[in-house]
């Protein structure tokens, strides 16, 4: 039997405004960030946001390869977003898809404004992001983890970049969409920002929103980013407390 998916489903959110996984409209998924998880990397972070599990590792500043990409006045900053073949229901080919190419680029654009690239001429910094398990909103979780990994690597930054999506599901504006909400809902609006500078560095959308809904959705996503920002800072502090203890012993 063919299952024909509907664009909107009543089950995604009930009359009391409770979502399929029991969350309120403006509630984030349970989120955990860990710092310093890859031995070889100069900096690294791991994030679990709901059922998403994502690793980010930073290598650099280092020499630029290939060499002709060297810039005399600034660092070459690159992010690579990649999904493991087993991270989704149907096996994904390990070769980077068009979606992964685009996401690598928009993630690079989302994080680069936070870095003092002009302080590291002729160098490269690479951030490698591996999505181990995906359940909607991976680009945002990836940005959140990558920014923490860069801080762990000691790269000078203007602010952390925190990311969170908002969207419209079953007629309601909601925060931090999971996979079913993204696929069956009416709109998805991922946002990344530097909360201290009020600077939005990633904004994408697909679906349909009236202008006033769009405005509300941007503001809702910003509140999500601010909550994520607090978790990022907590994770970094916890890491330094752990290092300090280890040194003192």
């Amino acid at each position: 039997m063919l299952k024909i998916p509907q664009k909107t489903s009543k089950k995604l959110i009930d009359k009391a405004g409770i979502r399929a996984d029991g969350r309120k409209p403006n509630e984030l998924r349970p989120t955990k960030i860990e710092v310093g998880v890859i031995e070889n990397a100069n900096g690294s972070a791991y994030i679990e946001q709901g059922k998403n599990k994502i690793l980010a590792g930073v290598y650099g500043p280092k020499e630029v390869h290939p060499r002709h990409l060297t810039m005399l006045d600034r660092m070459l900053f690159r992010c690579r977003y990649h999904m493991a073949p087993f991270s989704v229901d149907e096996r994904k080919s390990p070769a980077p898809s068009r979606r992964e190419h685009e996401l690598s680029k928009v993630i690079t654009w989302a994080i680069e404004p936070s870095i003092f690239v002009e302080r590291f001429p002729r160098t490269a910094v690479d951030v490698f992001i591996e999505v181990l398990q995906a359940n909607g909103g991976t680009r945002c979780a990836a940005i959140t983890a990558a920014s923490v990994a860069l801080a762990d690597a000691g790269i000078p930054m203007r602010d952390l970049v925190a990311a969170c999506a908002s969207g419209k599901v079953g007629g309601h504006l909601v925060l931090d969409l999971m996979d079913v909400e993204d696929k069956m809902g009416e709109a998805d609006l991922p946002v990344a920002m530097m909360p201290n500078l009020n600077a939005i560095t990633l904004l994408q959308m697909d679906g349909g929103l009236a202008m006033d809904e769009f405005e509300q959705a941007v503001n809702l996503a910003i509140t999500g980013c601010k909550q994520i920002y607090a978790l990022q800072k907590e994770a970094l502090k916890a890491r330094y407390v752990a290092v300090k203890k280890a040194v003192e012993e």
Partner: peptide
């Protein structure tokens, strides 16, 4: 209504 958005550039 807004159907798609893309921010580009660093």
């Amino acid at each position: 209504r807004v159907c798609a958005i893309q921010k580009g550039g660093s």
